[in-house]
Design a protein around this nucleic acid. Structure first.
Length: 563
RNA sequence: UGUCUUAUGGUGUAAUGGUAGCACUGCAGUUUCUGGAUCUGCCUGUCUAGGUUCGAGUCCUGGUAAGACAACCA
């Protein structure tokens, strides 16, 4: 018997999976695994959320547990159904399905009842000071806070006022409910944290004006986890200091062996990108991008519109891992992941985005041949299609040089090149206008070198893509580059809006694509041969085709030129 | 003069006291009807000083550096 341990090495666990397995081994929570993805519906999801989603849903999937979607909707001032809808759409697009969908607002009554319990136990009180005074009394990380003059008011008084906080009798900002813990705690979060505040100015997107007193995050989030039976509450590193308070609340209310466990991991930082919802909102509101789904945005909907596949995003997140180290992830790795994903799955087509005419002087005018070409060399099952060939073609301007260096393998006088899936041609010259701009390029074809014929096996250094001028469709192509010109815009002291890459979008309107693209649908993905991966923008119509460049192909010639 | 946390090639991530490995990037080559893809090789690393141990990236102590925490945000 041969062991197969060498063939299937055990995949190493990340530290969270290791905790989960240990908890399972220890028999905690009856062997149950339950996670949740808890977005606040105040913005669109971005790739950083995707990292959290993959973890929350992935842990549940791998350990036979469940993952729920819960909207942490405790602040009506910022939240909206628009976001509730987009969040669900994005999670599903990523390929996940929640077991249940919950809202923190579902628990407003339970949270309220528990808060009353806390007041009755003398562990919470109503404070009538201004926000400024309360902030002042908090002290600082190195200086202990001071106690509120309302801290020791009678329980009955707090109880009565708390009820009033929810009737509309109390003005916004006039009173808050605070836990009575320790104003001198070295952990700032223990200095009598706020539990409830009054909001009457905005309706809640689900409960309208029913509630006037709304619970704060630390209280609502942890208790929501508890109500739902969450076993592993996974969140990002900045909540580490909140964990003792999370545990404190659980300790106040828990009535069995069950307890949720908060574990923090590093958030996703991408080079040349900002990942803050606030900054993204600003980009959108100030029209610095076209919207949340602008293909330059790191939002899920932006990536989708850009042509990223869910598969690419999963691969990327798989590669970066989960640790407690505050990492800067190279956006090049994301680009690698999408190339790797699309290379295997996407059809190759011909498109010329910076066209110049190529005239084959010895090819009969008016003759049209249909050339057979493979759809995807990486996928044997992808089949072939026919593309029209004639005596006038478009090729890329960059593929011709009148005076070419030795390493230039493309169109240049007296040099043979292959026109992909067609013939080998030899350049004979070109015509220039008075400014010296090349208007037409001339070549002669060798009829014996048609693709598939024996002579076509001749060695030529370069292969060019092309479209037939009379058959090609005109199209708009949008070329995207990194949104920011600085590697780490968040660490730069300058305003992030001054750090935008002025060339992050280039729109080319005079592009030509092969006729088969006439019937392409929005979001369909392609490889434009030798150029990169592109998809059909939702703006595209049969009359006016619009394509987005997802990512360019690796270009070793461009690199060579930079030397 | 606080609490919590982190430190492995350029970047990210493994090694769970026992040969520092993988991916991306970069470089060189192979191959190719995409200067793509493929395949091969190479470069580059345990923050620091002590300690425990037969043996330390891993455990302990001190230092250094970095991050989070003082919203009626989540």
């Amino acid at each position: 018997m041969v062991t197969n341990t060498e063939e299937t090495p055990k995949k190493s666990l990340n530290f969270i999976e290791a905790f989960v397995e240990q908890d399972l081994k220890d028999g905690k929570n009856g062997g149950r695994i339950q996670t949740r993805f808890p977005p606040e519906p105040n913005g669109y999801l971005h790739i950083g959320h995707a990292k959290a989603i993959c973890l929350d849903f992935g842990i549940a999937r791998n350990y036979n547990g469940i993952c729920n979607l819960r909207f942490d909707d405790t602040n009506p001032v910022k939240e909206d159904v628009e976001y509730v809808d987009s969040i669900q759409e994005d999670i599903e697009w990523l390929g996940y399905k929640w077991q249940n969908i919950y809202y923190a607002s579902d628990y407003f009554q339970q949270l309220w009842d528990l808060a009353i319990e806390l007041i009755k136990q003398g562990k919470a009180y109503i404070d009538e000071q201004s926000a400024e005074d309360i902030a002042k009394q908090k002290g600082s990380p190195t200086v202990a806070g001071t106690e509120s003059p309302y801290r020791n008011r009678p329980t009955e008084e707090s109880l009565a006022l708390f009820l009033k906080m929810n009737t509309g009798e109390i003005a916004e900002g006039a009173m808050v409910l605070r836990a009575k813990i320790d104003m001198a705690s070295p952990n700032m979060h223990f200095r009598d944290p706020l539990l409830y505040r009054v909001i009457t100015s905005h309706p809640h997107h689900r409960t309208g004006y029913t509630w006037k007193a709304y619970p704060m995050y630390d209280y609502a989030h942890g208790q929501s986890d508890y109500f739902e039976g969450v076993t592993h509450s996974l969140c990002t590193l900045e909540f580490e200091v909140h964990r003792p308070l999370y545990d404190w609340f659980i300790d106040q209310f828990k009535d069995s062996d069950y307890r949720p466990r908060q574990i923090e991991f590093n958030r996703l930082n991408l080079t040349y990108t900002v990942m803050s919802k606030r900054k993204m909102l600003q980009l959108v509101q100030e029209n610095l991008v076209s919207g949340w789904d602008d293909p330059r945005m790191p939002t899920i909907c932006g990536l989708r519109r850009r042509g990223y596949s869910p598969d690419a995003i999963h691969n990327f997140i798989d590669k970066i891992g989960y640790t407690k180290f505050e990492a800067q992830n190279d956006i090049g790795l994301l680009e690698h992941a999408v190339r790797e994903s699309l290379n295997k799955t996407v059809s190759r087509v011909n498109a010329v985005i910076n066209p110049v005419k190529l005239i084959i002087t010895n090819y009969p005018e008016g003759k049209v041949e249909m050339m057979e070409t493979g759809n995807n060399p990486e996928d044997e099952t992808s089949g072939t299609r026919l593309i029209p060939f004639s005596n006038v073609l478009y090729i890329e301007r960059e593929d011709f040089m009148e005076d070419a260096p030795k390493k230039f393998f493309r169109m240049t006088p007296r040099q043979e090149v292959r026109l992909k899936s067609a013939y080998i041609v030899k350049c004979t010259g070109c015509k220039k206008d008075s400014e010296g701009v090349i208007e037409e390029i001339y070549c002669e074809y060798d009829a014996l070198t048609k693709s598939g014929m024996p002579e076509s096996g001749r060695k030529v250094k370069g292969t060019l893509h092309w479209v037939s001028a009379q058959h090609a469709l005109q199209a708009e192509v949008r070329l995207y580059d990194r949104l920011f010109s600085i590697e780490n815009p968040s660490a730069d002291p300058r305003d992030f809006r001054d750090l935008l890459n002025p060339d992050s979008l280039r729109v080319l309107t005079n592009c030509f694509v092969e006729p088969s693209l006439q019937t392409a649908n929005a979001l369909d993905q392609f490889q434009f041969q030798r150029l990169g991966y592109f998809n059909v923008d939702p703006d595209s119509t049969p009359e006016k085709l619009v394509f987005n460049r997802t990512v360019s192909l690796k270009d070793s010639w461009a690199k060579e030129q930079q030397r």
